[in-house]
Design a protein around this nucleic acid. Structure first.
Lengths: 336, 336
DNA sequence: CAGAATTGAGAAAACGATTTCTCTTGCTTG
DNA sequence: CAAGCAAGAGAAATCGTTTTCTCAATTCTG
């Protein structure tokens, strides 16, 4: 049991060193003027005593709390956690910590959390969601701390970060083409999602206007029905299926296997999201588009840092590239 | 764009009200003595001005920051996010915010995050992991803020919270028995996990010493192989399979379907974890044991509050009950 | 060698609240 | 009617730093 020894204050350090608090402060912060010897001696004493500056006092005077808030409605964490990891990674070296607040889709809860964050003088707020084209139910119009939007719909004049769905879809479909697939189909989620439309647009660009697109839901079950549909159609079975997410892709792969259609021999399947829990458990494991959410988070952290440092950041939407992760569901170059 | 109007300070409120800051402070905090009329008038003015007390100043003097840290090595968030949601829910009404810190399994990163939290004068630290019998790689022995361990191994004299695996397993197996299953098998994870041993112990208690237990990994693939094993054995096929987690259960269900063994008609399957992404996507959806992680989190929040309020909390392990969530993989009473 | 410039260090004023005194006033009460 | 007491409000100390002055002592410069 650690005895709750009183915290060492700067004045303690100063006293031991036989100098004033002012000098001690300057010694530790590398400011002010003094002999190198004095500075080093004070530093040494501070270290020996285990001095740890009180962040509250520091924040009070510097008007910076070295905290940021991450607000999300993605209870499940599928998107938010990687983003969070990235944000944290970008900020931890600067001594900045992250408040995570989950507001279901409840405006009242949003208000409460935003208020709490403002009370705590966060240096910035990162807003993140589970869908690129939906606003979070919080009103931030009156707020004067920097805000960065990640993976969620943002006002026009805001700083915002999203993954480049079109580019990701391009890569996926081009991969199918490059391994010799020609009869391509896209099985995806509801047309009401912006990302569905973007991915579908990219699909059409590469696969051609005639290539079929099946819209449905984001579920495995829809992947199954889509395969039913494809098999009962009069046209030839496709040899390459680009799916809107990994769950659909898993449904597709499972349904194909049940019909004894071999993946990847007869049909190549590509997923989207690279959600390991799904893509790695699929038989065979899915080749899938990774949205690089962690990189998105890192960039968000960096931007918040810029903004809270008073530097100007050009508003607008920044798109970060996706990356195709090759596993076994397509054939082609297998992972090393 | 909101103009960054300077924040309203208590002195602004006092000035408008024509009183001293001392009086204003007391009016708003319900302390001190003054006419009800004065108090109400000051409150009204504060509200009109949108006064929001500076949490740093408050923390500095009260020695409480109204923040707690949640440290986890569960990058994936499977366990931590529900816990986090519960913690947050328990604390938000008290105005306490939560720092979330993901330390992979990196002691150095752990050190950095713990230091950052201590610098920020967190009122308490909650430690959470992804495994009930592994320590997090951080040294908290020298630390004088309250600590609560959730879903992770804790020192003997610590306050710790875990789910009651044995009770959960009991309920699951008794459910199988209650719907008439008699030839029971338990397919579970590696024996090295404490929760595996607990669940297995409960299984044996209910199903009898002769009931078979197959140890393996936590994966769907292992669920498949386990079914292979069961089918190639000389004994009768079981009519009830209790699985160590939902992924194994899904593997088992899929493998049974591939062998045209009907679930739940021929065999009932129960999972553990109630991880919706897996249990709901399985065909048929899994009946599974829910560990009530959110409740665990709520309780952790409550305990941290007690401790940081200086009240005594009896150290030791607290077990919270699990709850069986009935879906369709067992038959019996289907969900309403 | 006198005056200017530089150096090293401390005193004190912030930061924005809370809290403990102190000081008027007005009202009891014997 | 004098003495005592409570009510209402303000002055000032406090929390632990940072930062801006101020000041004496030393080193240049011409």
């Amino acid at each position: 049991m650690a005895i709750a020894t009183d915290r060492i204050r700067l004045s303690d350090v100063a006293q031991v060193a036989g100098v004033s608090v002012a000098t001690a402060s300057k010694a530790l912060n590398g400011t002010g003027r003094m002999t190198l010897e004095t500075r080093e001696r004070i530093k040494q004493i501070a270290a020996d005593l285990g001095f740890r500056p009180n962040a509250m006092a520091r924040a009070l005077i510097s008007q910076r709390s070295f905290t940021v808030g991450l607000l999300t409605n993605d209870t499940y964490g599928r998107f938010t956690l990687p983003v969070m990891a990235g944000v944290s990674e970008a900020l931890v070296d600067e001594g900045v910590s992250v408040f995570l607040c989950g507001i279901e889709d409840d405006p009242a809860l949003g208000r409460v959390h935003v208020d709490a964050m403002l009370d705590k003088q966060v240096d910035g707020i990162i807003l993140s969601g589970k869908r690129i084209d939906k606003r979070l139910p919080v009103d931030l119009s009156e707020i004067s701390v920097p805000i960065v939007y990640v993976f969620t719909e943002a006002p026009d004049d805001a700083v915002s970060l999203v993954s480049d769905d079109a580019q990701g879809a391009h890569e996926a479909v081009e991969w199918l083409v490059s391994i010799g697939r020609r009869r391509l189909v896209h099985v995806t989620g509801p047309k009401s999602f912006a990302s569905v439309r973007e991915r579908a647009g990219a699909f059409t660009q590469v696969a051609g206007e005639s290539a079929e697109i099946l819209y449905g839901s984001w579920s495995e079950a829809w992947g199954h029905s889509a395969v039913d549909q494809l098999c009962s159609a009069e046209t030839d079975l496709p040899d390459g299926i680009f799916c809107g997410n990994d769950q659909i892709a898993r449904g597709v792969v499972d349904a194909l296997r049940e019909r004894h259609i071999a993946v990847p021999r007869d049909v190549s399947v590509v997923g989207f999201d690279n959600w390991e829990i799904v893509s790695a458990a699929t038989r065979p494991p899915l080749t899938s588009v990774d949205m690089n959410l962690k990189a998105l988070g890192r960039e968000a952290g960096r931007l918040i840092l810029e903004l809270s440092g008073g530097r100007h950041v050009e508003p607008g939407i920044r798109k970060l590239p996706c990356k195709l992760v090759v596993r076994e569901s397509c054939g082609g170059a297998a992972p090393a």
